[in-house]
Design a protein around this nucleic acid. Sequence first.
DNA 1: TAAACATATTGACAAAATTTGATTTGACGC
DNA 2: GCGTCAAATCAAATTTTGTCAATATGTTTA
Lengths: 104, 104
Amino acid sequence: MATVYDEHAKVFKAFCDEKRLRILELLRGGEKCACVLQEQLDLGQSGLSYHMKLLVESGIVESRQEGKWTHYKISEKGSTYAGTLLKELTTPNAVTEEKDCRDK
Amino acid sequence: MATVYDEHAKVFKAFCDEKRLRILELLRGGEKCACVLQEQLDLGQSGLSYHMKLLVESGIVESRQEGKWTHYKISEKGSTYAGTLLKELTTPNAVTEEKDCRDK
DNA sequence: TAAACATATTGACAAAATTTGATTTGACGC
DNA sequence: GCGTCAAATCAAATTTTGTCAATATGTTTA
């Protein structure tokens, strides 16, 4: 059973791995074919595929098939959502009910 | 050797775990003592301590010692930094040099 | 249709993160 | 100082992630 917490965690998993951050850095330069990404990273073919899958599932990256190639780019929508979510998760709640420590 | 990628990854690790997201949710209601957090979460004492350490190291949470109690709250500064970083990591680079797929 | 190529999927293994219980540390009151 | 309590640390067990090699899938071209 996937909770809303797991859903949210999935989004940020995109940014939690060195390899994926390198991939995102490359994609900041524009849409890239998997083959181009692979030749710039220290990653085997299946390794790249693994990370791209996570990135796409997180919503941060979107993919486009073109014949036998797959092109990837940063999703503006997904990125905006992640930003919004991050802000939500760290902004004080309206209903700020304080609960004191036991004996105080 | 910690790369800048690892540094960045550390920030987002805060949001990559269900338990930590639950903790943040509680902290959105204001500063809380560890004992209060523990009684609201399905976590043992050492488990909570483990997650709090990660949260503090990520910069998202700050702690304050008061006698034998430790109080935690969401760090506005850390949260803002995370938001800025996320935006940076997902915003197209100025220098958008396209590199085409091999044969095209 | 067969061969060639790009990518995805799978399974075995390695590495990293998390959980748990026990122990330690540090603060407090007696 | 001694006992107590809150929290941190440690070590072992477990779970989750990531890697790698092999294989499968789907597309293109001959």
